[in-house]
């Protein structure tokens, strides 16, 4: 159960300005059915170029409907320059706040407004700028960067709450962290060990670690090691040279190879010898 403010509940149960303005000056559509929320915003200007009327249609949860309703109320009477300054934080504040997990609803309102203004000004339909980072929700690096900067976001979870990025499969978490670090002025920090790797990433990292760390050490004693297979978190290896005949090979395998791989690749790896 979400904790909504009375104002959110009011705008959800009694939404203002539902509908579409037929001869609208500005039209902005964002979101999709697949994403779970979508908003169509239309507005009409008066002779002094102020927003005379605004209407919305929204598919989404209570906070999406309330954010849309609030937005239409907020922009009435504004010039387009004034309206362009409305931020997602303004929408959330107008409603007395939104649950953190629902901030993306206010971002959707701001995005629709920007699109509607661009439509009126005849600016080309803006393609989502930048490179797609989150493939599940089609969010670009520029959108993430902007959300981080404008809302002073600190964590990947924050980013998910505001622009949904990272809320699906989770493969983009590293990329999101890099954007957060870059915005927050940290240079490229030593990457923390990722907790989840794809199989290909895992195998590559195991190979690199074997080549860089483990093989040189074994070779000093006249031994060698070969990667045979990786199945889940089980790493199958073959020992060669002196290692293969060494009475202490199990110690080498578990005490050295396994602990090295656990340290540098993934803590849950298990090394097994193939004869």
């Amino acid at each position: 159960m979400w904790e909504y403010t009375d104002k959110v509940k009011d705008h959800f149960l009694n939404p203002r300005n539902v509908g579409v303005i037929e001869d609208a000056d500005g039209i902005g559509e964002v979101g999709s059915l697949a994403c779970g929320d979508a908003l169509k915003l239309t507005f009409k200007l008066d002779e002094t170029q102020r927003i005379k009327d605004a209407k919305f249609q929204t598919f989404g949860c209570a906070s999406a409907i309330a954010s849309s309703s609030a937005l239409t109320e907020m922009i009435k009477g504004l010039t387009l320059d004034e309206a362009a300054k409305v931020t997602n934080e303004d929408i959330a504040q107008y409603l007395g706040g939104l649950p953190k997990e629902k901030m993306h609803c206010s971002v959707m309102g701001r995005d629709a407004l920007e699109k509607a203004i661009a439509y009126y000004r005849g600016e080309a339909e803006k393609k989502p700028e930048g490179r797609i980072v989150c493939e599940c929700f089609g969010v670009t690096d520029m959108e993430i960067e902007r959300a981080v900067r404008e809302n002073n976001l600190q964590t990947i979870e924050d980013v998910t709450d505001y622009v949904k990025a990272g809320g699906g499969c989770g493969n983009c978490h590293d990329a999101i962290q890099e954007i957060i670090d870059a915005v927050r002025g940290k240079g490229p920090v030593p990457k923390e060990k990722p907790l989840r790797l794809t199989n290909i990433q895992k195998i590559k990292l195991i190979e690199e670690t074997l080549d860089r760390e483990i093989k040189p050490a074994l070779k000093k004693d006249g031994g060698d090691i070969e990667l045979v297979d990786v199945d889940g978190d089980r790493v199958f290896v073959k020992l060669h040279g002196t290692c293969a005949t060494c009475a202490a090979s199990q110690v080498t395998l578990k005490g050295y190879v396994e602990s090295k791989l656990q340290e540098l690749v993934l803590p849950q790896l298990v090394v097994e010898e193939v004869q």
């Binding site: 149960l13 779970g36 929320d37 989404g60 949860c61």
Partner: peptide, 23 residues
């Protein structure tokens, strides 16, 4: 339509159900 919105409107009438929606 979206499930959370349906649930909250039913909740106003005392009807308790669940939804499989994302929200």
């Amino acid at each position: 339509v979206e499930g959370e919105s349906i649930l909250l409107m039913m909740d106003r009438l005392g009807i308790c159900a669940s939804s499989g929606s994302a929200c």
